[in-house]
Design a protein around this nucleic acid. Structure first.
Length: 522
RNA sequence: GCGCCUGUAGCUCAACAGGAUAGAGCAGCGGAUUUCUAAUCCGCGGGCUGGAGGUUCGAGUCCUCCCAGGCGCGCCA
């Protein structure tokens, strides 16, 4: 609605007027500080400038009031007529309404997500990156974008060799090497392989395949569907890595030092040059990483989004440098660096360290609290904030738990709709402006405003690349509904039945975007 | 040693381009159910935005320094 109004104002008075929300105590829907901006350039009196604008703005039927306040703000109150009019358009076809009002260039988007090394089961941190990526994918998809979802598999290199050795040791009844992988899962895999009595020559490859199938199962339990698992080895097989080396060489961006080959990352804003071929002749992961991103762009994607744990932040600049060196394009990669997840039980920290093999597996969390609860819980904070996941709290079916608060709103509406049908049979309420003008009450206008905010919400999620805001919105929409329910009788009123059906639609759509199943009853 | 991030109510977090009197939830206290699901609703308290300067009409937000915590970096993934 914000964007619609900004557009209307532009059409009416031919000035860009950015709208924002006023503080709570101000009785208005939107406010603007344009007057300040104009004064800064024209050296005039703020009040005078504002008054001039207000005189024109007051003529618009979209507003029932436009007024000046203290230092120099202009405040707007939207007219009920306009809200009802927009609501009619909205309710006719919500998806279409939202798409039409999110103006954004339709680019091809590739979201790379999770990409955990296939050396062990997924842990809760991967889950956080997963839901963030999946939520963004949901929004893009909802808005009609061409979006793909990929998991990058590091299936070669030193770590994989080590993994292979560890598995082989387990198979032969021994212990993994000093720096090897000590988790129980390798014992289970070894047992399984013994039963199958297979000939194994490449232990690394076998280990990767086995673990990858575990990971895929975990992802499927978590409700995540990837369009593609992209294997690092592919980049070597199809020559992309060599190609990259050639391009960089031709551009004079590689030099030799201490027997290793270095990429001049410093020239592209990194703090240091980076090794791409080690002195023992083997390539670094960095080399295949830039090859992978080069490949993404070659496949025609314009926006690359990656979700990484914040501990990888040192890696961003170097990858950006690589991409820029190869394609000349800057700012094409957007990395969502999410902060660490700590798992707690009744307020007490559960230890999580990959090294010691006692990290909290995603699987265990899902088994305990359920997929949907886990998903919302991981989106309860902005990704830039460290997250404490309390298993006991997440399981509680009470006020402490925001998950049920939202689900309850949806289930409550479903229940009313069922009851309505039982008592009064099918209904078909036609919205019209004349009818609504008579029946709509103030609480409903407030809820309509919230519903009409939907396009702004999704735009904002894409600006910030954070699905957290959807959860935040769901909480406040649910709250508005619960309040409405407690004050107004709905069941016997045709209009209200039709109205809450729209609220249910919105909650349901947003939950689905987040990969969560809306509940019909609780 | 160098670099990045964070510091806001007792706790967990917000504050959308630098805007107005910094907001929610939880916890605490008090109230609402012969009713469409009380897993709900309503009300009440609670703050030197880590500290010190600076920039300007205006700073939680930008700049400098300090304090506290987290993370990364030296051919590791």
């Amino acid at each position: 609605m914000k964007k619609i109004l900004e557009k209307r104002i532009k059409e009416n008075i031919d000035i860009e007027v950015p709208l924002s929300s006023p503080p709570q105590w101000v009785d208005a829907d939107f406010s603007t500080n344009v007057a300040f901006r104009i004064v800064k350039e024209e050296k005039r009196n703020v009040q005078e400038v504002a008054d001039e604008l207000i005189r024109e703005l007051k003529k618009m039927y979209e507003f029932k009031d436009v007024y000046f306040l203290k230092p120099g703000f202009i405040n707007f109150k939207i007219s009920d007529d306009f809200i009802i009019e927009e609501f009619l358009k909205f309710s006719k076809d919500i998806d279409e309404y939202v798409r039409r009002n999110v103006k954004r260039e339709k680019k091809r988007v590739l979201i790379e997500c999770v990409s955990a090394n296939p050396t062990g089961p997924l842990h809760i941190g991967h889950g956080r990156g997963g839901v963030i990526g999946d939520g963004l994918r949901g929004v893009y998809k909802f808005l009609g974008f061409d979006v793909s979802f990929e998991y990058y598999v590091n299936d070669r290199g030193k770590q994989i060799e080590l993994l292979g050795e560890s598995l082989k040791a387990r198979y032969n009844g021994g212990n993994p090497p000093e720096n090897g992988y000590k988790g129980d899962y390798l014992i289970k895999i070894a047992e399984k392989l013994k039963k199958e009595k297979r000939e194994i020559d490449n232990w690394g490859e076998v280990a990767v395949n086995e673990i990858l199938s575990i990971i895929k199962e975990e992802l499927s339990i978590f409700g995540m569907k990837f369009d593609r698992f992209f294997h690092e080895t592919e980049l070597y097989k199809n020559g992309t890595v060599d190609e990259i080396l050639n391009i960089l060489n031709e551009k004079g961006l590689i030099y030799e030092k201490d027997n290793a080959k270095w990429f001049k990352a410093k020239e592209f804003g990194d703090t240091e040059d980076r090794v791409i071929i080690k002195s023992d002749g083997t390539p670094t992961y960095f080399l295949s990483d830039i090859a992978y991103h080069y490949d993404k762009l070659r496949r025609g994607y314009d926006v690359l989004i990656n979700t990484w744990g914040a501990d990888h932040h040192g890696y961003v600049k170097r990858l950006e440098a690589g991409i820029q060196a190869l394609t000349g394009k800057k700012d094409i990669l957007k990395v969502v660096l999410y902060q660490l997840v700590r798992v707690k039980r009744k307020g007490e920290l559960v230890s999580m360290s990959t090294r010691e093999g006692e990290f909290i597996e995603l699987r265990k969390v899902i088994d305990e609290v359920g997929k949907d609860v886990a998903r919302i819980y991981l989106l309860l904070k902005r990704y830039s904030t460290p997250l404490d996941f309390d298993l006991e709290e997440a399981k509680k079916k009470s006020m402490d738990n925001p998950v049920y608060y939202i689900q309850y709103a949806h289930a409550r509406i479903s229940s009313i709709l069922r009851k309505r049908k039982e008592r009064f049979g099918d209904f078909n309420y036609e919205f019209s402006k004349e009818k609504l003008k008579d029946v709509v009450i103030e609480k409903e206008i407030e809820i309509m405003k919230k519903l009409l905010f939907l396009p702004d919400l999704l735009s904002f999620v894409l600006d910030e690349l954070d699905p957290y805001f959807i959860v935040d919105y769901l909480l406040s929409l649910s709250s508005l509904f619960h309040n409405y329910y407690n004050y107004e009788r709905i069941l016997e009123n045709e209009w209200r039945i039709a109205f809450i059906e729209k609220i249910k639609d919105v909650i349901g759509k947003l939950l689905l975007i987040l990969g969560i199943k809306p509940l019909e009853e609780m």
